[in-house]
């Protein structure tokens, strides 16, 4: 059995790579992919804890996270499609009408 520490380190790595990607990447779709990576880090942590504690709660939580992430992807990609139709770009640097 894989020790919990290993699982948590991997989950932390996935989450951090996701956060770094959201901050550093400029393409809206790639940013969104990085958010999905963060959510997968979360899922891994939940499954790790659930396995160690032998409780189903964490596993069920993962199912909800998956479903919600799918729903979010549907809406998010639709929004990006609409932006691309109007502006022909998905770079977050060029989507900059609103500024202080």
């Amino acid at each position: 059995m894989i020790p919990l520490g290993h699982i948590l380190i991997l989950s932390g790595l996935l989450f951090s790579i996701g956060v770094a990607g959201v901050i550093l990447r400029r393409n809206a779709i790639v940013v969104f992919l990085n958010i999905e990576l963060m959510l997968n880090g979360v899922n891994l942590a939940f499954i790790g804890f659930a396995t160690r504690m032998d409780s189903m709660v964490g596993v069920i939580f993962v199912f909800f996270v998956l479903v919600v992430a799918a729903a979010e992807a549907v809406v998010g990609l639709a929004i990006m499609l609409e932006i691309f139709r109007n502006k022909e770009t998905l770079s977050v640097d060029e989507i900059n009408l609103l500024k202080w």
Partner: peptide, 21 residues
């Protein structure tokens, strides 16, 4: 409006990641 939706979406999803972790 597109831009506002996209910013809300990306930041909202980002925040959800932190909340879930």
């Amino acid at each position: 409006s597109n831009e506002s939706a996209m910013k809300y979406f990306l930041l909202g999803a980002f925040a959800t990641g932190f909340l879930l972790y």
